[in-house]
Design a protein around this nucleic acid. Structure first.
Length: 672
RNA sequence: GCCGCCUUAGCUCAGCCGGUAGAGCGGCGCAUUCGUAAUGCGUAGGUCGCGUGUUCGAGUCACGCAGGCGGCACCA
């Protein structure tokens, strides 16, 4: 580990400057060093143990190699291997070690790119023969050997043309292409470890040994070169890497936990829905899943009613000529389910609700007095999604949007948008989601409309978001080709984020479909449309809810809210009576009168994630009480039936119908 | 759509080198009436995803197809 200094090549032409540089350490100390000193030398001067732990340095906020010669002074920090900010570099190094292993084991394989990603890394390889899962074990084994070899990792600055020639001579055409495409001012750096080298910006750890062995290759996948499906498909190997074995284990356990709350698995276990091959991307809702849907739909309907929306229902199937007028036939045709009748008519299932809504708007004469007109529909749409993109309830071909279109004047856009932002936040909050971020998607490269139009449109959405008290994050270039939009990103219980809710400005469709209203001036005017959804689709949102709550829904959403379970058959009549009383109060109740032990029943209903089990035995039957047991708690609260009815009814009241902020009655016992 | 992997009972899974299919849970039946996370015994249940081929013989091998899963691409 001492020859690294000899290998080090100076930067092409060291900039002139003072012979000494001054470094400020995290504790505030300032020290002066000769220019060209390395982090490793500084660490060694401080203490041998620090030199041993040191992995990277940070100079003025930028991470650099430990052996990088320092040309300028500034804020300086030496980061040990376990420092959280080193992890990304460690993962990047793991990808290099993997690439080295792969090229040793499979000569002729070309390397392309291999970055660190969340929780791990990947590397894309070009090789004719596909890798197999068995290969992964071999590669992993070789990676461990490379770590044991303790190969020094050295940064070298190369001449661009030489670098291209070099990689081409090795048959590394992808690397050569990357170099050619690098901006001219970008120095070409190559990192060498042992016999292996790779074009890379860095920084890297000082040795392969520092990568450690807390890594695991996890999956094999195809990936297109430069992310473009017209290019060759490469073979991507994913891995995860951590500083310590304990962190790796914790990560693998987290994955197992996430798998347990997978909505497809819970959907089956809880008997909520199923899908089958004759209807790919189509959902069969079972009674319990549909109950969940109905609860959600009823809630949304109340919220929309209260927010001044009018609900409508538009046709499922419309003639081709209609979709030609709307522009969908030209732009959206590959995604539409088209059918032909015996009489030769060509029709399409609706992929969107907006054109239908414009038809309703266009009936009769509209006055400016009717604006803003908020038209809502729980609109069932069908879209032909690529087979590989289907994913449980999250990506389906038949789905129902909580769709609405607000027809308004331009000067109403800000107010309407602000109202929508507030409504969306309320609803997401009620449904257990935390607003994580609101994105303002701005003008894309390819777009319609003048810059002045975009300036104005983006400005209005920004103003509206601020009026509602949120500062959107700008998503540069993510807007639709005709207008900007706001996207609402929520965070679930385990920190994953989902895009739910969107608002999109549209001047185009009203124009295409000839929507107009009569203004104060007696003239005809074109309304603006705001397309907006809060859940997105019921299917997807329910999928997200299942995962968010891990199936343990709050009382108001749970398909079965209470199971009345008997201890002996002597209590059966009373159990029916108790269940009837609870049902009469509007609760969703089942009884379990089976001749089974109470332990068995409690276990079964707990696994089914029933929020409340009301146990009744001889004692309760005699005294007119119930023993309530909450999911997640082994405490029981015994109380008179009427108290239970009142308490549970109150708690099961949907958030929008609560008199005041939820008043949970403590007597029932809280969740653990 | 593309790449890889997978497909055995309702569910979760076992079935080595090819000899004709098994467990647990669940279902059903009987017994048990038992106070807060699995009562016991018995019993039924399978064209081993579909098709073709190799073979005396295929759940097992080969090829094709379909579906599922993980990625990639897509998500105006």
């Amino acid at each position: 580990m001492t020859d690294h200094v000899l290998d080090r090549q100076p930067e092409a032409s060291p900039a002139p400057g003072p012979a000494q540089i001054e470094l400020e350490f995290p504790d505030g100390a300032r020290r002066s060093y000769p220019r060209g000193i390395t982090g490793r030398e500084i660490a060694a001067a401080i203490s041998p143990s620090l030199a041993k732990r040191a992995a990277l340095i940070r100079l003025n906020g930028t991470l650099l190699d430990l052996d990088r010669a320092l040309e300028t002074g500034g804020r300086f920090e030496i980061l040990g291997r376990e420092h959280p900010d080193v992890l990304e570099t460690l993962r990047h190094d793991a990808s290099h070690v993997m690439a080295e292993a792969v090229q040793e084991l499979f000569p002729g394989t070309q390397v392309t790119i291999g970055p660190a990603i969340e929780d791990g890394f990947y590397y894309d390889f070009a090789r004719d023969t596909p890798f197999s899962l068995d290969d992964l074990a071999r590669i992993e084994q070789r990676m461990r050997e490379i770590v044991d070899r303790d190969e020094t990792i050295v940064r070298e600055v190369w001449d661009r043309d030489e670098a291209v020639a070099h990689f081409e001579s090795l048959g590394e055409t992808y690397k050569a292409e990357i170099i050619r495409d690098l901006p001219a001012e970008e120095p070409i750096t190559v990192y060498r470890q042992g016999q292996w080298k790779d074009l890379c910006r860095g920084p890297h750890l000082p040795s392969t040994k520092m990568v450690g062995k807390a890594f695991k290759l996890t999956k094999l996948a195809g990936a297109y070169w430069r992310g473009d499906h017209r290019n060759a498909q490469l073979q991507r190997i994913y891995g995860t890497a951590w500083a310590t074995e304990a962190e790796l284990d914790a990560h693998l356990r987290r994955l197992e936990e996430a798998e347990k709350r997978d909505h497809r698995r819970l959907g089956r276990q809880m008997d909520l829905f199923h899908m089958q091959e004759e209807g790919r991307g189509m959902v069969f809702w079972h009674p319990k899943g549909w109950q969940l849907w109905r609860t959600l739909e009823a809630y949304m309907r109340r919220r929309l009613d209260a927010a001044g929306y009018q609900e409508v229902k538009t046709p499922q199937v419309l003639d081709r000529s209609f979709w030609e007028k709307s522009g969908h036939w030209e732009k959206y045709r590959p995604n539409m389910f088209v059918c032909e009748t015996v009489e030769g008519e060509v029709l399409s299932l609706k992929p969107m609700n907006c054109p239908g809504h414009v038809q309703i708007f266009g009936q009769g004469q509209r006055s400016y007095r009717e604006l803003p007109l908020r038209m809502a529909e729980f609109g069932a749409c069908h879209r032909y999604e690529p087979s590989g993109s289907l994913h449980g309830l999250m990506r389906v071909r038949g789905f129902t949007q909580d769709d609405a279109h607000i027809f308004c004047r331009e000067d109403q856009i800000v107010e309407e948008t602000a109202r929508f932002v507030r409504l969306t936040q309320t609803i997401h909050g009620d449904l257990g989601m935390q607003t994580h971020q609101i994105q303002l998607a701005t003008r894309p490269e390819i777009r319609a409309g003048t810059d002045a139009f975009w300036d104005k449109a983006e400005g209005m959405l920004l103003e509206a978001a601020r009026a509602a008290g949120v500062e959107p994050v700008i998503a540069e270039g993510d807007g639709a080709f005709y207008a900007p939009k706001l996207d609402f990103i929520v965070k679930d219980a385990i920190g994953r984020t989902w895009t739910c809710g969107t608002l999109q400005l549209d001047y185009v469709l009203p124009e295409r479909l000839g929507a107009e209203y009569v203004g104060e001036d007696g003239q005809k005017h074109r309304p603006v449309m705001l397309h907006r959804a809060i859940l997105g689709s019921f299917e997807r949102f329910i999928g997200i809810m299942i995962e968010n709550f891990a199936g343990a829904f709050p009382l108001w959403l749970a398909p079965v809210q209470v199971v009345v379970a008997t201890i002996t058959s002597d209590a059966s009549d009373y159990a029916e009576e108790a269940a009837a009383a609870l049902r009469k109060a509007g609760l969703r109740v089942e009884t379990d009168l089976r001749n089974e032990k109470i332990n068995y029943k409690v276990r079964e209903h707990s696994l089914a994630k029933t929020p409340v089990i009301a146990v009744v035995g001889r004692k309760e039957a005699e005294t007119g009480q119930v023993a309530l047991r909450r999911l997640g708690s082994d405490r029981q609260v015994i109380l008179p039936l009427q108290d239970a009815v009142r308490t549970l009814t109150e708690e099961a009241t949907p958030p929008d119908l609560q008199a005041s902020p939820v008043s949970r009655i403590s007597v029932v016992g809280e969740l653990a």
